[in-house]
Design a protein around this nucleic acid. Sequence first.
DNA 1: TAAGATCACATACGCCCCGTATGTAGATGA
DNA 2: TCATCTACATACGGGGCGTATGTGATCTTA
Lengths: 200, 200
Amino acid sequence: MAHKPRTEMIAETRAKLVTAARKAFGTVGYAEASMDDFTAEAGLTRGALYHHFGDKKGLLQAVIAEIDGEMSARMSAVTRQAPSRWQGFVDECVTYVEMALDPEIQRIILRDGPAVLGDPSQWSSQTACIRNMTATLEKLIEERTVRTIDPRATAHILNGTMLYASLLIANAEDQRKASQEAVRAMTALLDGLLAKPEAA
Amino acid sequence: MAHKPRTEMIAETRAKLVTAARKAFGTVGYAEASMDDFTAEAGLTRGALYHHFGDKKGLLQAVIAEIDGEMSARMSAVTRQAPSRWQGFVDECVTYVEMALDPEIQRIILRDGPAVLGDPSQWSSQTACIRNMTATLEKLIEERTVRTIDPRATAHILNGTMLYASLLIANAEDQRKASQEAVRAMTALLDGLLAKPEAA
DNA sequence: TAAGATCACATACGCCCCGTATGTAGATGA
DNA sequence: TCATCTACATACGGGGCGTATGTGATCTTA
């Protein structure tokens, strides 16, 4: 029974740390998560953490990158199977809101992330989601479906729109009702982007 | 030279603490702000802080309440002197974006606040700004200027829209250009709320 | 395949920061 | 004027973090 190669072992411990941290950050939050505690839970010590990620912030970045990769994958899947380009864009937005309902995502991506790492739009990761949306917008503007506005700026701003829609829903007593209201308001706003606005 | 009455002295020390904390939170951030440091800067100790505010979070709440009061005042001033109700609403939004450009506000209200205290829409204070906007929206819907959407949900969502517009501008290399792009995108979105959409 | 170098972690130490428990001086009220 | 209360300061203990150091296993090279 030979040992696994070294690189594989390393990847494994990195994954163990990221998983344990993600769980801790997602539940008790970044500030309250004791490095001693969640490294121990992964069968390791802080030594491993510092070796691989530099510090607590570095580990948070890794966790965020992992989450963001998952979100990005889901979004592009939605875009691919949309009937029209505009509908695909709207679906993308709705999917984003749905994903942001996850308490773990809210805690790590929306609350602690910005506080610790600063403006999300600067993160290499978060940009992935936004880049998707920017690209879609560019095409929509090119084909004259959408007004001539700056696609990057619009994507960033819509990012905020959707995140706060998620917050609204997540904290509502009646989530179903809140979700309907939020989607309705959001689609109304999105209609404003259209070159030929639809009737209300 | 008689001493000042006691209640006045108390209000003064509270104000001193809030001011010192606001400065510290706004520059180095909540987590990095040492209570020993900024209380000393106010000529006090942590004892005073715990006595008046319970803990660090309590002080942050007080700081946020102060800032939010100022923001609320500015917003209602803008609303009062608007030519039309819809224009007043748009101005309100633009003002909000402008205020959120302040690094202190970004740091305290947008980054650290949510991380420490949770969803901003739950803060008694933040509600002030949102309530303003909700009220304006209600009237606009009543007079059929705006589509029939839920005003509270819309206000919350727009809150996010504007905050991220501010982030975008604040972090841009060319702030003037970014601000133009952001305002353009925002007004486009807002047009979507109108019952009779304006031509692009 | 054996010796040396390297790497992936664990251990150990000190510092700072926080929360609480306790002390105290001055204002208040009879 | 004395008892009480209040607004703070001081003192103490604990925990978390960052770093410096140690160690055993793996990889390299001849």
